[in-house]
Computed example of a mutant assay.
Amino acid sequence: MKTIGLIGGMSWESTADYYREINEGVKQALGGLHSAKIALFSVDFEPVEKLQHQGDWQGAAAVLADAARRVEAAGADCVLICTNTMHKAARDVEQAVSIPLLHIADATAQELALHGVKKVGLLGTAFTMEQDFYKGRLQQLHGLDVMVPGEHDRKIVHDIIYQELCLGQLREPSKAHYLRIIDALAKQGAQAVILGCTEIGLLVKQADTQVMLFDTTVIHARKAVQWALS
């Protein structure tokens, strides 16, 4: 079994789900008392969040590059960035280490392909929904037609992530907002919706809607398990 490297803490609420999902995946695959071999470096999210909203992506990338080097030094054979938004720093992380990066957008696109999804809605932080580092990768590398909510709804999705979900606050009115936005994307032609922030799956579950949801935390964690056991 290979060792999975995790860069977590953005936020730790969803990083805990990564740890659980990966260990459950290894247990299911191997049985007995097996658990995953994981090297985790968890950053302090407060300064990273400030750098994001200041537009200092170079500074934020430096934090993740340092974390990646620490994960590699701890014996990891691959590295995962346990957040969609900070995949904006994916290239910096790849250049900082000699081990492969398992990209969350690639894992998600592969899962969408298995389900025959070509036109998909995307929810996430404003950075993820509006910038090309994620949406553009889905479109250009994987040929997906990606839809995002309108400006007003993008702000709602973004604010709930930072002001509630990253703090572990799960509120029914916020879930109602998300479900309304998901339904609107489906009515506009989306065959499915990507929960493109690792915290959204804490609030919205497949049982809450008939629209097909793709939880990037679960998908990314499963990809890590497949890689580690391959």
Rank of each mutant, 00 (worst) to 15 (best):
K2G: 09
K2Q: 12
T3N: 11
G5C: 07
I7M: 02
G9Q: 03
M10Y: 09
S11K: 10
W12Y: 13
S14E: 03
S14Q: 02
S14A: 15
R20P: 00
E21R: 15
E24V: 15
V26H: 00
V26W: 00
V26T: 01
K27W: 06
H34K: 04
S35K: 01
A36W: 02
I38R: 04
L40G: 02
D44S: 14
F45Q: 03
V48L: 15
Q52N: 00
H53F: 15
H53P: 01
H53I: 12
G55F: 11
G55M: 06
A60G: 13
A61V: 13
A65E: 03
A65N: 05
D66P: 01
R70P: 01
V71T: 04
A74N: 11
A76Q: 08
D77R: 09
D77W: 09
C78Q: 03
T83H: 07
M86V: 07
M86Y: 08
M86T: 09
K88H: 03
A89R: 11
R91S: 06
D92H: 07
Q95F: 13
A96P: 00
V97W: 04
L102E: 02
L102M: 00
H103N: 10
A105S: 09
D106L: 09
D106E: 15
A107Y: 03
A109L: 00
E111H: 14
A113Y: 12
H115S: 15
K118Q: 12
V120D: 06
G121R: 06
A126S: 13
A126R: 05
F127E: 00
T128I: 02
E130V: 11
D132N: 11
K135S: 08
R137M: 02
L141F: 05
L141Q: 15
G143K: 08
E151A: 13
D153A: 07
R154H: 06
K155V: 09
I156N: 12
H158C: 08
D159F: 01
Y162I: 08
E164Y: 04
Q169W: 01
R171S: 08
P173G: 10
R180I: 07
K187A: 11
K187D: 00
G189I: 07
Q191E: 15
V193W: 08
I194L: 08
L195F: 02
I200A: 13
L202D: 14
L202V: 15
L203Y: 12
L203F: 14
V204M: 09
M212P: 03
M212F: 04
L213K: 06
L213C: 06
D215T: 08
D215Q: 10
T216M: 02
I219R: 06
I219F: 11
I219W: 14
R222L: 14
K223A: 10
K223V: 04
A224M: 04
A224T: 11
